[in-house]
């Protein structure tokens, strides 16, 4: 069970997210695609820090510094998740506002600003 599986998983998650953003017409589906992409990226970050055969980097009596996984990516992912949440929340408020004004969520129609 080499490390490649995790990388493969992360990258495929990112691509699925990208696919959703590129193809789907409904705005909410695009936002869902965005968050999928963010989770994929977080998974990639985690898998980089993973050292086979070691446990989570929570220091308790059984777990010492040299039998825990590299903690830094874990910390990074924490902030990345928070940021992801903030962006998605803001995006949803904007989507609600759009729906109230234009009564539609279809990307094709939301094209007032152009040219």
């Amino acid at each position: 069970m080499s490390i490649g599986v995790y990388y493969f998983g992360a990258v495929s998650l990112i691509l699925i997210g990208l696919y959703a953003v590129l193809v789907k017409k409904n705005l909410l589906k695009i936002l869902v695609g965005l968050s999928i992409m963010e989770t994929g990226v977080n998974l990639l970050l985690i898998s980089i820090g993973y050292i086979a055969g070691r446990s989570a980097p929570i220091l308790s009596e059984g777990v010492g510094p040299n039998n825990a996984v590299d903690p830094i990516p874990q910390a990074l992912v924490l902030t990345a998740i928070v940021i992801g949440v903030a962006t998605t929340a803001l995006a949803l408020t904007v989507a609600i506002n759009l729906y109230e004004t234009y009564k539609t969520l279809n990307i094709e129609e939301l094209r007032r600003l152009r040219g």
């Binding site: 990112i14 705005l27 970050l45 962006t87 995006a91 904007v94």
Partner: peptide
Amino acid sequence: GEASEGAMKYIVLGGIGSSFFLVGIALIY
């Protein structure tokens, strides 16, 4: 309506950009 449309575009494109930026950081790290 216009403001939220502008913001929506900014969020979607900004979001994609920043996630790929994070991938870059992951690779460097």
